[in-house]
Nucleic acid binder design. Sequence first.
DNA 1: GTCTATATGGGGATAGAC
DNA 2: GTCTATCCCCATATAGAC
Lengths: 236, 236
Amino acid sequence: MATNETREKILDAAESLFARQGFGATSLRTVIAEADVNLAAVHYHFGSKEALIRAVFSRRLAPLNAERLRRLDDIENDAAGAAVSIERLLDAFIRPAVVLAPGGTDEAPILTLLFGRLHTEPGNNLPQLIYDQFDDVVTRFVEAFTRALPDLPLDELYTRFHFVIGTMASSFADPQRLAYVSRGRVDRRDVESLITRMITFLAAALRAPATRPHGAEATVDLSSATGDPIGAGARE
Amino acid sequence: MATNETREKILDAAESLFARQGFGATSLRTVIAEADVNLAAVHYHFGSKEALIRAVFSRRLAPLNAERLRRLDDIENDAAGAAVSIERLLDAFIRPAVVLAPGGTDEAPILTLLFGRLHTEPGNNLPQLIYDQFDDVVTRFVEAFTRALPDLPLDELYTRFHFVIGTMASSFADPQRLAYVSRGRVDRRDVESLITRMITFLAAALRAPATRPHGAEATVDLSSATGDPIGAGARE
DNA sequence: GTCTATATGGGGATAGAC
DNA sequence: GTCTATCCCCATATAGAC
C-alpha cells in the first residue's frame, strides 16, 4: 500500500469522527477501526493525537480561508470602492465552509460539522496555530463590514461579528437542534435553504441600529428590552 | 459534615468544571479535588458520572425554564391579546440564563457557560431528560414568536429560532472568541452589554422579510446572496 | 456517610520484529 | 512502512473497613 494512502485514510476517518463526536470523545482506536489501519501507523505518520487533530484541520483550513479571502477580493474588486452588499460579504464568509465540504452524507456536510466544532469546543483545546490561520480572515472581514456599516460603533461591530460566527458555527454544529425545535418539520438536509436563510437573518441583524448605551434613549422600541426590563431586580 | 453539604460541594465543583471544560474533559478526580471530598462520595451520592451530570443540570434547569415561562406569562398578560414586543420575548428567553447564575467569577457567569455547553456539545450525549425539560419552553416561545411575526412562514420561523438558540448558546459558551475577534477591545466581562446587544441583533434578524424560495425574486436586495452567488459552480 | 484500597477497562504511546 | 505486543497512566466504579 502506498504511504500516502494510509495517511489519507487516517485523515479521512479522523475528520469524519471528530466532526461527529468531537475530539475528546474520539479515541485513536476508533479512528484506526474506521480507517482499517494499524494503531502504530497513526503515531508513525503523525506522532500524536494532538498532531493528528492539527493535521486534520490544516488539510482543510488553508483552502477554506483562502477561498473566503478570494471571494472577498472579488466582491471588493466588483465594487471598485463603492459600498458592498452585506449579503455578499456574509455569503463569502459562510458558504466556503459548505462548498469545500468533501463528502456530503445523508446528514450535513462533514466539513461543516468539523468547523462548527472548532468554534464550539472549549477554546483552550484549540491549538493557537488554528486561530493563527484565521487571523487574516477576521481582519479582512471586520474591515469590510466596518466599511459596509459605517454608522455602527466599532465595539458593537466586533460584538456582532462574534454573534455571526456563533450563529454559523452553532447552527452547523448541531443540526439535530433544528429538527428538535421544528418537531421534524424542517428538513435539516436542505443545506442550501439553511444558508440562504442564515444570510437573510444575519444581514438584517447586522443592519440593526446600534444599541444605545445603558440607560440612554433608544431610537427604536427597546424600552422593555434593557435596564431591568421585566423586574429582574424586584423579583429575587 | 452534614450529608447535604458534601452533595452540594460536589454539585458546585462539578458545575463549575463542566462549564469551563465540558463534560468529557472533566474527570471525577478533578471534581473531588476542587470539592475537597473523597472519590467514593461521588458514587455514594450520585451513582455515576452520567448521573452527576444530570443532577448538575436538574438543579438549575427547572428554575431556569420556570423563570422563562413566568416572564413569558407576564408579557402575554401585559399585552392582553395585543401584539407583544420581539425584544421582550427575547429578553424573557435569554436573560434568565444570566440572572439565575449563582457565582459570577471574573469571567462570564458559570451558569451561562454551562447552558451554553448544553447546546454545543454533541447532541447524543445529552440525556433526553434535559431536552424534555426544554419542551414547554420551546413550544410556548415558538407560539409567541409566531404570533409576533404573523407574516413569516413557519418553516423559516423554526429555522430562525434555531439561529437564536445558536447565537445565545455559542456566544455565551465561548466568550474568548469575542476577545479574539475584537483583539481585546471589547470587555467580555460586561455581560449586560452583551445581552442588550444580542437582543438588538436578534430582534432585527427575526423581523427580516422571509427569504424567498430558491430562484424566485427577492423583495429586498438579496440578488447576490443566493443561487450560485459568486460562481461556486464554475469555480471547482 | 466517609474513607482506603483496589478492581477493571480504555486511553495514548512505544519497542522492536518483519 | 507496517505490524504485534506491551508499557503505563488515568479513568470510572466498587468492596468493605470504620
